[in-house]
Amino acid sequence: MRDEDEFVAFAQGARDRLRRTAYLLCGDWDRAADHVQDALIRVYVAWPRLTRAGREYAYARKALVSVVLDHARRRSSSELPVEADVQRPDGVDVAELVSARETLLQVMAGLPPRQRACVVLRYFDDLSVADTARALGCSEGTVKSQTARALDRLRSMFEDSSLGELTLGGARTW
């Protein structure tokens, strides 16, 4: 009862971006692929009304967040990432950068799933507070408070290490 060609085209275009978001949400590439598949099944079911509304990707991202949070609720443990990408610009201390990235992901792995999702949606997907709230199905106030707690935790971990200061980058503020 649906236009599968359009759905497949959408899924092929969205899968990579969704998988990266899923990886940052869960810390494991294999599980990220599973989560994206589950989310895309939800998108398939809802596809007719989504194509009308023209908000396919936002729905897919919301479905993905829901899948990941559902899974996190079922698990008592979370995984520590991460595999390193050693390709760095010239003149940069590769070891230091890899260490900073690993530290960030390890601290994120210890965050409550919704706090982690706030960080990923706000600073990887670059969603506004309002859009993050819609993706998580909560209030904007909750997004702000959860994000602030997560960032406090991340920042304190960096301050306590030899890695230096942690900032947001870009135009947004704490």
Binding site: R15, Y23, A33, D85, L104
Partner: peptide, 24 residues
Amino acid sequence: MVNEVRTLLHEAASTPPADDIDLA
């Protein structure tokens, strides 16, 4: 050293392994 959250997140997700998502 200054570490940017956005940059670190994008770098962390920049080199995914082969995509094994099964669209079928």
